[in-house]
Design a protein around this nucleic acid. Sequence first.
DNA 1: AGTACCACCTGACGGC
DNA 2: TGCCGTCAGGTGGTAC
Length: 258
Amino acid sequence: MPELPDVEVYRSYLAHTVLHHPIEEVEVRYPGLVDPDPGDLSDLEGESFEDTDRRGKYLFLASGGGPCLGLHFGMTGKVEYYREGEEDPDHSLAVFRLGNDHRLSVISVRKLGKIYVRGKKEDLIEEKDLGPDALSLDQDQFLDILDGKRGMIKSALMDQSTIAGIGNIYSDEILYQVGLGPRRKIKEIDDGERKALYEKMKDVLRTAVEAKVDPERMPRDYLIRRREPGAGCGKDSGEIRKIKVNGRSAYYCPEHQG
DNA sequence: AGTACCACCTGACGGC
DNA sequence: TGCCGTCAGGTGGTAC
């Protein structure tokens, strides 16, 4: 599930659990899904995680004197913090044994996730060519970015080097809230709509984080609560439709999204 | 630059 | 119950 809001919830979870405890041992279960450059996960043994950060869908765990961890989850993935003695979760890529009788697991069911070991988070941000985080860019930056892009709006929102953090689910949600069709050409979006797009982008992402990403806790008129073909639109009498945009399924209401 | 494919991998679900 | 095809919230590579 991990788009910006999911990863932000994970980040906050880690900030409240794993920081400042010595890392006693790191067990790597899927060495092919660890990307060490330079150093390796074992370099974290004896260190402790001291800080968390996030850029788009990437989560960072910085250690005191050792390397910085970059976590990416792919389409399925999460982190889990649990007591020593409890069973390790299935599909753990790596397990960190901490000094406080707890463990941290990085989980990726479909193995599309990855653990990066880097000197500092900026190294990975540069390497992956990540654009500004969707929650931290201001309106002028956003408008400038749109001015420089062509093509379909949904594709632009999902391009991580343009804006980092928005994926398939939340791009649909933002467009649904603004009332723009997913295939709408950027060039055909007027100034008022561009500003609304910026506001709704922030609004939707913040709302999802506050709801801890639970659709039940999000507003009733959110698309995420009715994301299936034929469902009734939460805003009018339209019916939710599913189409392909850039190879991904896009859900929208033809009634109010033009 | 944008788009359209394919590939990576596992699990869930619908149809028969 | 079991097998099969399809799909899933991401990214990277290639080719046009």
